[in-house]
């Protein structure tokens, strides 16, 4: 098989053609999905003689766009480098952070493939497709069996378990992200240094949240009294801001020799050698 150890980052002509075709198809799919999402209420509105005015749609949609728009937009910027051309299907089917990202991450780490390569692109697309099939299948089964299943899913224990899915997922993801061996045979020394600056900045944002420190009472305005507004409502913006900060800080450390990468076959100096 080609490029399994290093994951060729430069797709050949055929690879580039495949990726361009996937993006083209992705763009069409997204346009089609938006058409369907807006087409369904339009058809129903016409049939039921219940079409709302454009101003009514806008008035109710605007707060949702303000609160959820940045997060939805940040998904494209944050996850495209990881998901590649399967970003389109992921955006159409949703459940990015709690479902698609861990599934893709699991598939990539199982196949020892690194994100941002052609191999990662095809594996991610297969993983996202399978996750979509499974989720739609389960919801459809649920629709068919709604009544007999309802008592089980409303058990308090199931509610506790489903409320804690994200922290349970993030633990596994963090272990993979902090690994010094992102792919077989590769070793990265000092890679955690790149996380120092973003960690300090996020900590400062949480500690000095203007809502909590009384500087701006945005929490009251948004009906979220006593909660940190920036991290609750504007997490998407924080993610967008942190990506270039982490990227350029890590690159600066790499150029200064604080972070070193050893490719397969290269000797990794032990600690004693380094200190000499």
């Amino acid at each position: 098989m080609r490029n399994h150890s290093i994951n060729n980052p430069d797709p050949d002509k055929e690879g580039a053609r495949h990726i361009a075709a996937m993006h083209r198809f992705g763009r069409l799919s997204v346009a089609g999905a938006m058409f369907v999402m807006l087409g369904i209420p339009t058809v129903l509105g016409v049939y039921f003689h219940a079409l709302p005015a454009f101003s009514e749609i806008l008035q109710s949609s605007l707060p949702m766009i303000i609160v959820f728009g940045p997060n939805a937009f940040s998904n494209v910027i944050s996850y495209t480098p990881i998901l590649g051309s399967s970003i389109y299907l992921t955006l159409i089917t949703g459940e990015v952070t709690n479902l698609k990202l861990p599934v893709v991450n699991n598939a990539l780490s199982m196949m020892r493939v690194e994100a941002g390569t052609e191999n990662a692109d095809v594996i991610s697309a297969i993983a996202v497709s399978v996750a979509t099939f499974v989720t739609i299948f389960l919801i459809t089964v649920c629709v068919i069996m709604m009544i007999p299943l309802e008592p089980v899913l409303s058990l308090p224990v199931v509610k506790i378990v489903s409320a804690n899915i994200l922290p349970a997922l993030f633990g596994s993801l963090l272990v993979d992200a902090l690994s010094s061996a992102p792919t077989e045979g590769v070793h990265i020394a000092g890679h955690l240094k790149g996380l120092i600056l973003p960690t300090i900045l996020v900590l400062l944002i949480i500690v000095f949240d203007p809502a909590l420190s009384g500087f701006l009472r945005l929490d009251k305005l948004l009906g979220m009294e006593g909660q940190g507004v920036i991290m609750s409502a504007y997490q998407g913006f924080v993610v967008i801001a942190m990506i270039p900060i982490t990227y350029f800080f890590t690159k600066w450390l790499y150029k200064k020799g604080q972070i070193q990468v050893y490719l397969p076959g290269e000797k990794i100096p032990d600690k004693k050698e380094k200190s000499r």
Binding site: S78, I82, N105, A177, P182, G194, T246, Y247, V261
Partner: peptide
């Protein structure tokens, strides 16, 4: 090799 992980770490 490093840059691929930077995005996920930031998130």
């Amino acid at each position: 090799m490093i840059s691929g992980g930077v995005y996920l770490s930031s998130v």
